[in-house]
Design a protein around this nucleic acid. Structure first.
Lengths: 179, 179
DNA sequence: TTAAACTTTCAGAAATTACTGAAACTTCAG
DNA sequence: CTGAAGTTTCAGTAATTTCTGAAAGTTTAA
């Protein structure tokens, strides 16, 4: 590993826990991304100086995020790993998985709590707040899904046109009035 | 604390680490959000059964996220805490702080690495990937900023009109052609 | 000044999370 | 079958993170 590549891989490790996994899982994913060829478990464990067992667990974790692919080479019984999908797909998958882990459980709890009537004033206030949070999370979730369904090209084009979302919406208003 | 309120507070605790802080900080914030009156440090420590010192550290953490406010009551030397801003502001602050912690350091590392020329083919491939990631993160960052600058009302109205982002963009195209 | 009422800090303990390495398991060619 | 070449599991250990509580620090009223 050259210094530049190593700095990237190590950075992925440090950021790992902030992105939702742990250090070695972050390193593993970083390594798979910047390495052109797919890698075997032993190669990964040697490159990162971690145990074979840890690699196995890490791969499992990355698979649960739908971020790695397994490949087989002819005449070779080993499994080779590479990132699943494009960079854009990787981003949408991380988003989606994080939504599942960070938002969905909360939405479900809020829905449950909103079902039965508040018992007193304190609970009324609490429910009002929960309602606000619930509605906001739903809105954000929907918007995220919309953006994810667009190609990065479309997003980029739009950005480069200098069209902020607000401007587009204003245009829409204009269009609806004029047309 | 009624059962309903407690379930919310405990949930915030469980989710805390997924949202970027730890259990007690999550509980503290949950408590402040659903509690109408602002609370003193001692009240928080009693409500959550945690030490006074831990409350102090937790408040500091929440302040670093710009999520709590300090108040003073007349004839009372204690500090009283309450959530800073509306639910929408709370969401944008969490987003923004997470961006600072989760994305900005990576963007900066990528920029640094992209400055000098690749030394060999392997590094060329790595740099191409880094470039892709860099551009994507920038696009996402910009979009997030755009959405954050909108009021939740505006977002909601748009959602309820059934206008998906794609549709809006199509409208924009139409508008540009027709008008 | 003083001291009461409060807040912050931080060393060490407790709790949690991650990692290792050896054993168990799986697969497949011969 | 057998055993070689691989993968997975998991108990125990290591590392990290969080929490406590006592001591130090701050503020203010008198």
């Amino acid at each position: 590993m050259t210094a530049k590549i190593e700095s990237f891989v190590m950075h992925c490790g440090e950021m790992g826990s902030r992105w939702g996994f742990n250090r070695t899982v972050g390193q593993m994913y970083g390594l798979l991304i910047i390495h052109e060829q797919s890698l075997s478990a032993v190669q990964i464990s040697e490159a990162l100086n971690i145990s074979r067992g840890n690699v196995s667990m890490g791969i499992k974790e990355l698979q649960s995020w739908r971020l790695v692919q397994v490949q087989h080479k002819p005449k070779d019984r080993k499994e080779y790993y590479s990132p699943a999908g494009s960079i854009w797909e990787m981003a949408t998958r991380v988003f989606e998985e994080r939504r599942k882990r960070e938002v969905d459980p909360t939405l479900s709890l809020l829905r449950d709590n909103l079902l039965d009537a508040p018992g007193n004033e304190q609970e009324q206030y609490a429910q009002d707040k929960m309602h606000e949070i619930h509605d906001l999370l739903e809105t954000i979730t929907h918007w995220a899904a919309e953006l994810q369904s667009m190609s990065p090209d479309k997003l980029n084009t739009l950005m480069k046109l200098g069209a902020s979302v607000s401007k587009v919406i204003d245009m829409k208003d204009k269009f609806l009035k004029n047309g």
